[in-house]
Design a protein around this nucleic acid. Structure first.
Lengths: 338, 338
DNA sequence: CTGTTAGCGCATTCAC
DNA sequence: GTGAATGCGCTAACAG
C-alpha cells in the first residue's frame, strides 16, 4: 500500500542507494538526480518507514525519560524543557511515569536494554550501585536530571546549599525555632530520592552555623504532597513550644503548611513564616517565599548532555550544578516579639 | 555484542523459528523444547530486539499522544490516565507537546504516517476536516480525548452543559450580573480548542433560561492562563456596573480572577463570586467552586477506545460523554444585597 | 557521483 | 511439533 524506497527508485529511474542518499541529505548526489528523486517522492507521496530506518541504522531517534510522579509541577516543568530540547533536535520522547518502587526498579532495569531508544534521561531518581553497573555494562547513554551518581553525567542543583539558603533567610529574620517538613524516609528509600534529605542537611547546616541547636521534634517527615504536609505541620504547630517558622522541602509541601496555619488560625507571616522550594507556578500566586531552581533549564541541559554522550563527546563536567536563588515573597517575616 | 535470536537457537540446539514461537508464547512448542529454549535465553541474557520485532511484525507497541500545553494541570492529569492505561497494556507513550499553531499542524499531519506508533491520542485539539480526511485515508487509529469530530472516536464531556451548570449555580444564588472570562478567539482558532467556546455557550444558555439578557461587555477573552485572566477580570470589575459573579472557563483562569479581586480589595465570596472549571488539584486548596470533570478517567478511556480500535472492534459509541459535577466550595455565595 | 549488494533481528509462511 | 526459507524497508559499504 504505502510506497517504499524501491518504488521511488524505480519511478525516478535511479538506484535504491541514491534515494537513500537523498533522504539522508548526502552531498554525494547531483542536483539533477536529487530533483528527480524528490519529484518521485512527492508524486508517490512517499514517506520513509521510521522503523525500517531504525532497524537498519540502529538509531531510533527516541529518548526515554523516567519521571517519578510526573504530575508534580516541578517534574512537569522539567519535562517541558526536555520535550522542547528533544524536539528541537529531531528526537521523540517516550515517558515512563514512576509512582511505585516496583516500577522504579523495572524502568531503571529496562532502559539498559537500549533498543527502543537511543538513550535515557532519569529525573530525580538516583540509581543504586548495581543499577549503575548494569547501565554501564549495557553501554546505555544516560543523563541524570536533578540527581547525581558515581560516574554518571547529569545536571542538578546543590540541594544542601538550597536548604541552607532557605533556613539562613529565616535565621536572618530572627527565627530560632524553625521546623522542617520533608519526605518520609520510606519514600526516600524506596525511590532513592535525594533532594528532601539534602535540603534537610542544609537546614541542619544553617542551624549549626548560627549556633542554634536542632531539635529532633522539629523535623517531620511524610509522604510528598499537601495532605501529609498539612498534618505534619499541624502537629508541629501544636507543640508546647511551636516553631515560629517552617521550611518545607517543596512548594507543594509548603502549601500543606499554609493549610495547617489556616486550620489553626495562624497568620502567615505574622504568626508563622513559611519557606518552600522549587518556585513552581502557584508559588507566586500564593506569595510564597521559596528557593527557585531552573526547572525548565534542567530538562534542557539534561537533553544536551545526553545528546553529547550519544554523539561520542562527553561533556567536561560530569555533574553540572545549576544556580538557585532565594525568592522572598510574603510568607516570611521576623518572628512576633516575645 | 548482544545476543540475537540465532544465538539462542544455536545454544538450545533448535531452529530459529522455535525460539520465536517461545518468545511469542505459541502453544505449538513441546514443554521440553520450551524449557531448553528458555534456559538458553537465560544463560545468554538474551532480550529480543524491539525494533527488529516491530519491523518484522509491523506493530510498535507505542502510542503517540498530542497534548497542547501539557504543563496545564488538567492536561497533565489526563496524561497520567493515559500513561497508566497504556503501561497496563504493555504500550509505550510518546508525547508531543503542542504550544504553537505551527506545531499543532505538523503534529496532526505527522501522525498520519502511522509508522513510529500504532495509533494516536489527540487531547483537546479538534482536527479540521482536511486533517480528518488525511487521517482516515492513512488509516491511522486515533482516539480523541476532550474533543469530538465528525466520524472520530473519542471521549469527552458536555462543555456546554458544564457552562450551564456553573452559571445556573450563580443564578440560583441570586446573581444577575455575571461575567465570563475565557480563551481568546485567536487562541481558540489557531489551536481549534472548543471547550472555552462551548462553556461560553453554556453560559449564554443558562442566562437565557433564566431570562437574563447577556451583556456583551461582560464577556472577556484572553490568552489562557492566570495573567491574562487577571487583567480581564480587573477590567470587568472596574466597569461602572461590575458583575457580582464571574464564571471562568478554567480553574487556572479562575485563579486570575481571584487575583484581580485581591488587587481591587474585593472579598470573595462576599463582594464577588467565582466559579472555575476542571477541579484541578489546587482548586480544593483555594476553596474554589468549580465544575469537576473526570480528567484521569478521560485519559484512561481514551486509551481503551484506541486499543479497541487497534484490535479491530470499534466501540459502540463514537463519542462517549463522561459525567461532570458541580463542586461548591467557598468562592460562591449570594450577591451582596443592593 | 551512482547502482548493487549484504545484512540489521525477527515473524511468518512453508515443508517435514 | 519443528527447522528452514523468505522478506519486512532501509542503511552502509562496496564497486564502478
Amino acid at each position: 500500500m504505502a510506497a517504499t524506497i524501491r518504488d521511488v527508485a524505480r519511478r525516478a529511474g535511479v538506484g535504491l542507494g541514491t534515494v537513500s542518499r537523498v533522504l539522508n541529505n548526502s552531498p554525494l548526489v547531483s542536483p539533477v538526480t536529487r530533483k528527480r528523486v524528490l519529484d518521485a517522492i512527492a508524486e508517490l507521496r512517499y514517506s520513509p518507514s521510521q522503523i525500517a530506518r531504525s532497524f537498519a541504522s540502529g538509531k531510533t531517534l527516541t529518548v526515554s525519560v523516567i519521571a517519578p510522579f510526573f504530575t508534580r509541577p516541578s517534574v512537569v516543568e522539567r519535562l517541558r524543557g526536555i520535550e522542547s530540547a528533544l524536539h528541537a533536535n529531531g528526537y521523540s520522547l517516550v515517558v515512563f511515569n514512576v509512582e511505585t518502587a516496583a516500577r522504579r526498579d523495572t524502568c531503571l532495569h529496562d532502559i539498559s536494554r537500549h533498543d527502543r531508544s537511543d538513550g535515557a534521561l532519569i529525573i530525580s531518581l538516583t540509581p543504586r550501585e548495581d543499577e549503575i553497573l548494569a547501565l554501564r555494562e549495557a553501554g546505555t547513554a544516560v543523563a541524570m536530571v536533578d540527581t547525581a551518581a558515581e560516574g554518571m553525567y547529569g545536571v542538578r542543583i546543590d540541594d544542601i546549599f538550597g536548604g541552607e539558603v532557605a533556613v539562613r533567610h529565616l535565621l536572618d529574620l530572627g527565627h530560632r525555632r524553625i521546623g522542617f517538613v520533608g519526605d518520609s524516609d520510606e519514600e526516600v528509600r524506596s525511590f532513592n530520592f535525594s533532594s528532601s534529605r539534602d535540603r534537610h542537611a542544609g537546614y541542619l547546616r544553617a542551624l549549626a552555623a548560627a549556633g542554634v541547636a536542632p531539635r529532633a521534634e522539629y523535623a517531620r517527615y511524610g509522604a510528598h504532597g499537601r495532605y501529609d504536609a498539612r498534618v505534619l505541620a499541624r502537629n508541629l504547630l501544636q507543640l508546647p513550644e511551636p516553631p515560629t517558622a517552617i521550611f518545607a522541602a517543596s512548594d507543594t509541601q509548603a502549601m500543606g503548611v499554609l493549610e495547617a496555619a489556616r486550620d489553626l488560625k495562624l497568620r502567615v507571616s505574622g504568626d508563622l513564616s513559611v519557606v518552600g522550594f522549587d518556585d513552581i507556578d502557584v508559588a507566586e500566586y500564593l506569595g510564597l517565599t521559596t528557593v527557585q531552581q531552573p526547572l525548565f533549564t534542567s530538562g534542557k541541559r539534561g537533553v544536551e548532555i545526553l545528546l553529547s554522550l550519544l554523539a561520542g563527546d562527553p561533556p567536561a563536567l560530569q555533574s553540572e550544578v545549576l544556580p538557585i536563588a532565594l525568592v522572598v515573597r510574603a510568607t516570611t517575616a521576623p518572628p512576633r516579639p516575645t
